[in-house]
Design a protein around this nucleic acid. Structure first.
Length: 167
DNA sequence: GCCAACGTTGGC
DNA sequence: GCCAACGTTGGC
């Protein structure tokens, strides 16, 4: 997409973001200053484009624990800062270092997210597969690997309703 | 640990 | 531009 039209028509307003709880869990997010963090380390172009070109401050996010036992949607956050360059790509010591990302023309971007609430009930993939209205959800597609992905408003509301709010 | 499904790389 | 080889993600 040409730069001039990158941000023209916005079609997505709700999101799901994956994190491995062994690396950074929703409880780490809860414990972070201001219950917020920069979402660094995304190294996939489609996911980057979503963050850079579509996400806006305030957009709601489902937080998903991948590589967990079982993997679950665990709570709700929102975008608290729009996309800016991911500095971890510039640092040779960082595991997410990428030499092709230059200070003057960064390849990788990140947003900040802030926790809203943790679900009373974690929602596993197995459970979500049985919920009416989620048949087309990207997360439930076989082979789905996108770490930042769109969620429809309906899907979002259905999931939030099931999750409840932890006391 | 296995392996399917993807994304990226690089030879041609 | 094609595509085989390779690396990664992530459920199970």
């Amino acid at each position: 997409m040409p730069k001039s039209t990158r941000q023209s028509q916005r079609t997505i307003t709700h999101w799901l973001m994956k994190t491995e709880p062994d690396v950074f869990s929703i409880f780490d997010l809860e414990a972070a200053p201001n219950r917020s963090t920069c979402w660094d380390g995304v190294r996939n172009y489609q996911a980057r484009n979503f963050m850079r070109d579509q996400m806006r401050v305030g957009d709601p996010i489902l937080v998903y624990h991948s590589n967990a036992q079982p993997s679950c949607v665990v709570g709700v956050a929102h975008v608290s800062a729009a996309a800016y360059p991911d500095h971890t790509a510039f640092d040779p010591q960082d595991p997410h270092y990428d030499p092709k990302s230059k200070l003057e023309s960064p390849t990788w971007f990140m947003v900040d997210i802030q926790l809203d609430w943790i679900f009373e009930v974690s929602l596993s993939l197995e459970m979500l597969r049985s919920v009416a209205g989620l048949e087309k959800m990207e997360l439930l597609r076989k082979g789905s690997r996108l770490s930042v992905q769109p969620v429809s408003k309906g899907e979002f509301q259905t999931i939030v309703k099931r999750g409840g709010k932890r006391a």
